[in-house]
Simulated scan of single mutants.
Amino acid sequence: MSRNVVSTPVATEETFEFQPWNLKTVKNHILPSKSPSSTSCSLHHEAFHKLSIPHLPDMVFPDNVLRIQLSNGAGIEFNALDALKLVNDKEDSVKVAVAEAWNESRADMNISHKVSHPFDWTFTTDYRGTVLGNMMVTATDSRIDMEKLKQKEKILFFDEIHLYEDELADHGCASFSVKVRVMPSGFFVLLRFYLRVDDVLIRINDTRLYYEKDNQYMLREYTSKESKTKDLKVPRVFWGDPNEISHHLSLVHSIHEKLEF
């Protein structure tokens, strides 16, 4: 008698060595809605469902990570759990009719946390990465040379890691992901939270991290941009393209830092 065996997806890992840095990416399956039997998955499930927000995004990738680290442990990583810890758990960021529709769409779902109090249902986060080990973070007047980054260079390593996503009950989209590329001159990271609430607003929170070869520091720049859709002067077709619409949003806040090691 044959027996069908359901196998657990295996995580994919990639590593790349660049000067003193080890860059590692991990990609795995979506967090299940119910606790799985394996110990490692159960621990992840428990950690995420202990978050102070009463509901998680539709799709969360608990194991996905980009980690950039020195041999002494210093560095930075980007993961979904630390990002969701920064979601406002006390009030809505977009108080419009679609918030009620979002709540109603979750009312009958079999989840461990009911939507019982106001929180940021758009899952907006200002997460800029998790600093590891002995890294000194200070404000700086230095800026990432974006024109230099536009120059054509050989791509030695590239990856994109999805952290979480939600369709906001078909009223838009919230997504959070990180991309990394390594060139002969250094490496560049773009961590992006993109939010579109249909016919209401578009918001993009970007963190850019740049390391130039032979430097003893990385530059980190955070920008938060937002505009109401009624104020946008570009065709609607561009609203769903974060790379394009980012140029047309109003700057709300920015932070410039130097990460020294």
Rank of each mutant, 00 (worst) to 15 (best):
V115S: 05
S33I: 07
D108P: 00
L70G: 08
H113M: 06
L219T: 04
S185E: 11
S38A: 08
D241I: 00
D89M: 02
D58Y: 11
R128M: 14
E46K: 14
A174R: 10
E212D: 04
L84F: 02
N28P: 00
H55L: 12
T8Q: 14
H117G: 02
K213C: 02
K95F: 09
I68M: 10
G172A: 11
G129W: 05
R203G: 04
I111Q: 15
E212L: 11
D89K: 05
Y210Q: 03
E244S: 01
A169N: 12
F61C: 01
N215E: 07
H162F: 11
L51P: 09
N205F: 00
K228P: 00
V189Y: 08
S105T: 10
L66Y: 07
E104H: 12
N243A: 07
S177R: 14
E257C: 03
L70S: 08
E226H: 10
W102H: 07
T124C: 13
Y164K: 09
H49L: 05
E226G: 02
I255N: 09
S227P: 03
E212V: 02
L163W: 13
T140V: 06
A139F: 06
Q216S: 15
P118A: 13
D92N: 13
Y164E: 09
D206E: 11
Y217N: 05
P62I: 10
V131W: 06
L201F: 05
K258S: 10
F157T: 01
A97S: 15
T207F: 00
V182R: 11
I202Y: 01
D198H: 05
Y127V: 04
D199M: 14
K148M: 13
D120E: 03
P9T: 08
K34T: 13
D206M: 03
A99R: 13
K179A: 08
V180Q: 11
Q151H: 03
E77W: 14
P9Y: 04
S33T: 14
Q19N: 09
K85Y: 05
D241S: 00
D120V: 05
F188G: 00
V137N: 09
Q69D: 04
L259T: 06
S93V: 04
S52D: 11
V200Y: 03
A101R: 14
F176D: 01
A101F: 12
R220G: 08
P184S: 08
T12L: 04
E226N: 05
D159P: 01
A11E: 10
L190P: 00
L249A: 02
T130S: 15
K233G: 01
S224Y: 02
K154C: 05
M59I: 04
F123W: 11
S38K: 09
P184I: 03
E17W: 02
F78I: 11
F123P: 04
K34S: 10
K225S: 09
E147H: 08
M1A: 15
